[in-house]
């Protein structure tokens, strides 16, 4: 279990993390979601005692991480896969970590096996691809067989196979009763992996709820139907009090399940070519929520804005 209590980190005049309080529970994957620069990595570093909070504190299993007797057994963390000395072999890197915590040496072989790195154990890390580095980071995180795992943007830059592997891996860890805390700036990724979401923007907590609730709250579900007798269907639906819109050749309606639309059409003898439920994109929901808290806005020039690039000079 991870607890953040009023965590705050100030760099100069900028609040990178602003009074964050949350709890990460065992047995589920908790997503830590926020746009780039929202303070996710800083928060994770503070949990590990790498960065000193300006105020507030973080507890892991009830105590500050830095007080742990066997730190690698408390938390396994993968912050940045490239945070290693490239001149060392994978095995040497893991051996150093295992020795420092007094972990048995066979753990090194076990985690190499677990992450499929046994074959490259004697290779120097600087020759590793990002995917291999990521696996090495996970191997290091698993060394102490910890109850709490923390991954910072673990799927960034990975190929689909690697992404799938990590996703399944995190799920299996949580299913085994561990606490899994994983950050991402991609809502779609979190929707697939996380059971619970902690959403931050500009260092502030924006949401702390189940992923399903988050999606339900932040995205409207609509039903789309395509029919050669669209007008007839629209009238039938209007009689039931359901308003429809024409969108891209479909009728779009909300507040009705697909079953009802299908039944209605059948009872009136209306032909249907397509009928499906559609969620407004999760990314859209996420962007809506974090709109005011995005650190760096990219200006999208539009004709209406009237400003021509370079023309203002």
């Amino acid at each position: 279990m991870i607890e953040a209590r009023g965590l705050t980190k100030v760099y100069g005049s900028k609040k990178a993390v602003d009074d964050l309080s949350f709890t990460v529970s065992p047995g589920i994957v908790t997503g830590f979601l926020g746009p780039n620069g929202a303070g996710k990595s800083t928060t994770m570093r503070m949990i590990l005692g790498l960065d000193r909070p300006t105020s507030g504190q973080a507890l892991v299993n009830g105590q500050p991480y830095t007080a742990a007797k066997v730190p690698l057994r408390e938390v396994g963390a993968l912050l940045d896969a490239k945070d290693v000395h490239g001149g060392r072999t994978a095995r040497a890197h893991l051996t150093v970590l295992a020795l420092s915590n007094g972990l048995p040496k066979r753990r090194v072989d076990e985690v190499l096996e677990l992450t499929g790195l046994t074959g490259v154990a004697k290779k120097r890390i600087r020759g590793f691809s990002l995917g291999m580095s990521q696996r090495l980071g996970i191997a290091a995180a698993m060394l102490g067989d910890p109850d709490v795992l923390m991954f910072d943007e673990p799927v960034n830059g990975l190929d689909p196979e690697g992404i799938l592997w990590i996703r399944n891996f995190m799920r299996s860890l949580a299913a085994g009763g561990r606490t899994v805390f994983v950050s991402s700036h991609l809502m779609s990724e979190m929707a697939l992996t996380a059971d619970h979401l902690i959403v931050i923007g500009r260092g502030k907590l924006l949401a702390d709820m189940g992923t399903k609730d988050f999606i339900a709250q932040n995205s409207a579900t609509t039903v789309r139907v395509r029919s050669p007798q669209a007008d007839q269907l629209a009238r039938a639906l209007a009689e039931r009090g359901t308003q429809t819109r024409q969108v891209d050749g479909y009728l779009e309606l909300s507040g009705v399940a697909t079953d009802q639309v299908g039944d209605l059409a059948a009872s009136r003898g209306i032909t249907i070519h397509e009928l499906f439920q559609q969620r407004s994109s999760l990314e859209e929901a996420f962007m809506e929520l974090t709109r005011d808290s995005v650190e760096y806005h990219a200006e999208v020039p539009t004709a209406a804005s009237g400003s021509v690039p370079g023309g203002a000079a």
Binding site: K69, P104, S172, L173
Partner: peptide, 28 residues
């Protein structure tokens, strides 16, 4: 790539971050 399995071996003995252990690590 084998399917990831997060097996839970029984908690093994670990000496912890004693100075001697840190020293051994730094030596390697």
């Amino acid at each position: 790539m084998s399917a990831p399995v997060a097996q839970r071996p029984q908690q093994q003995q670990a000496g912890g971050v004693t100075f001697v252990n840190v020293l051994r690590a730094e030596w390697v």
